[in-house]
Amino acid sequence: MSGPLLSLQRLEYRYPDQLLALRGLDLAIERGRKLALLGSNGSGKTTLLLHLNGTLRPTNGMVLLDGQPGRYDRQGLNQWRRRVGLVLQEPDDQLFAATVEQDVSFGPLNLGLSEAEARFRVHEALEALRITSLASRATHTLSFGQKKRVAIAGVLAMRPELLVLDEPTAGLDSHGVTHLLGALQGLHQAGTTLVFFDARYGIGL
């Protein structure tokens, strides 16, 4: 299919407290691209990101998936989120299960996969982020960097076409950043479209 995977047209978002966070925003995310969106704190990065998987609904303007307006009913959102994976900035906001394996299996099971298939997806995602050794660890015993990778694996296991990451390198040391970017590079080469949000310039993309 040609045309952008996801595009935003004249996007405007006003928070319930009337704060205008986004205005007149146009963006096209082409298939197979690797896109970094940079902006300082408070510039509306996270607000924009929450539009990409339909969490927030624009006050004005449109979000298009494959050229079709995004649907905000339950079924439409389910379809949307199968294709667009979202990784939050703070891994503790995302990891809810007691062990790594359990947490990563959550998304695949929600896709309606069989247990065997889900188990395979978990293994595949952990492998891609080179954290297979953490599989049976308790979530709360992980370091921040490990949690971050597990959070990404949890989304990756759903094999999204587009992976959106909110400040993936925030809070990581330089070794962690190198490791993570290497893993993301691998995903991109395997065909996943990537969108990063970051507050700092010059992260080694």
């Binding site: 809810f96 359990q102 099971l109």
Partner: peptide
């Protein structure tokens, strides 16, 4: 925020996970 994170992974009211 957890609700947003779970919804992004297809949460529809049931927290199913694989058990060892």
């Amino acid at each position: 925020r957890m609700e947003i994170g779970l919804a992004a992974r297809g949460y529809t009211g049931e927290l199913r996970v694989l058990n060892t």
